[in-house]
């Protein structure tokens, strides 16, 4: 029982991070049909920038804020200088561009930062909380609480503001959105900005638990992508549920089978989803009305 609780808590923690990465995928995909494989690099940039700012003596809250702003700026730059000039290219070409951007960002990070692993001090200390025989890291609670806040804010933004509705409108029908005067380029750019910011926050939150280095983005992007696929690409609810599920399954596989298989789980899930439920858990089949 204590073991189960332990796996659940660590599964939910890492799952919350996957959920945030998956949300980043979802937002950009919704607004532009692009799968942004540089999403993982946003997570890396958030963590690494914070680490190096704190090493330079900047207080943690300020360092984290700067990291989020800088990553957001990189997200916008990615759209403006790499995606936008290729406007009109096929979705596959645009996805290739994001893969290229991901490699570029990883390479640059290796030079600007370094090749070692880094950590950050946990926000609420490192002493585990004992609960039902399981030891839960306080940082896990920070991760879960922050993820909840981000998801809630994002939902409020989309559901309650006209700008949020404009994002939905652009996602639902790009042509009609342009015809009513929405500058859809700006909407896509905005979705890159928000996705980058969410990615950066995820990177800062997970660093005290899982460490960070210039190349953590690759695996995180693939796990987040698996989460988005499992939930149904394009569904925000699916991204959150998919992320938590993958985190849990991974934790159980690592605990009950072997931690060697931990990373294989996400890929197995991608395969199963693609073969048996390509629309994902919450993805909707398109309904046409005449």
């Amino acid at each position: 029982m204590a073991e189960l609780l332990q796996f659940v808590s660590s599964g939910l923690t890492v799952g919350a991070i996957y959920a945030l990465v998956a949300l980043g995928f979802t937002l950009i995909y919704k607004a532009s049909d692009i799968i942004n494989f540089a999403q993982g690099e946003f997570v890396m940039l958030g963590g690494m920038t914070t680490v190096f700012m704190t090493l330079a003596g900047v207080p943690l809250p300020l360092a984290a804020s700067i990291a989020i702003v800088a990553t957001t700026a990189i997200g916008v730059a990615l759209h403006r200088f790499a995606i936008e000039p290729a406007r009109g290219a096929s979705a596959v070409s645009l996805i290739m561009i994001t893969i290229g951007a991901s490699i570029f960002l990883r390479g640059t990070a290796q030079i600007v930062f370094d090749r070692r692993f880094h950590s950050l001090p946990p926000l609420l200390g490192a002493d585990p909380i004992h609960f039902g025989g399981a030891a839960i890291l306080p940082q896990s609670l920070v991760v879960l609480a922050s993820a909840t806040v981000i998801v809630t804010l994002l939902w409020l933004f989309i559901d309650r503001t006209l700008l949020g509705k404009a994002v939905l409108a652009t996602a639902a029908n790009r042509l009609a959105a342009r015809l009513i005067g929405i500058d859809t380029r700006r909407i896509v750019e905005f979705s890159f900005a928000i996705s980058a910011a969410i990615g950066a926050i995820a990177g800062i939150l997970i660093t005290p638990i899982a460490l960070t280095s210039y190349d953590v983005g690759t695996l995180l992007a693939l796990k987040g992508f698996a989460a988005a696929m499992l939930g149904g690409i394009g569904s925000a609810l699916g991204a959150v549920v998919g992320g938590l599920l993958i985190g849990m399954i991974e934790a159980f596989a690592a605990g009950y089978l072997s931690s060697n298989y931990k990373d294989a789980v996400a890929f197995l899930i991608i395969l199963v989803v693609l073969i048996f439920i390509p629309q994902g858990l919450f993805g909707r089949a398109k309904i046409e009305r005449v």
């Binding site: 939905l168 639902a172 029908n173 042509l175 009609a176 015809l179």
Partner: peptide
């Protein structure tokens, strides 16, 4: 413009 095929924002 009222586009061909109506093009309303279906989920909204």
């Amino acid at each position: 413009q009222v586009p061909e095929g109506r093009q309303v924002f279906e989920p909204l």
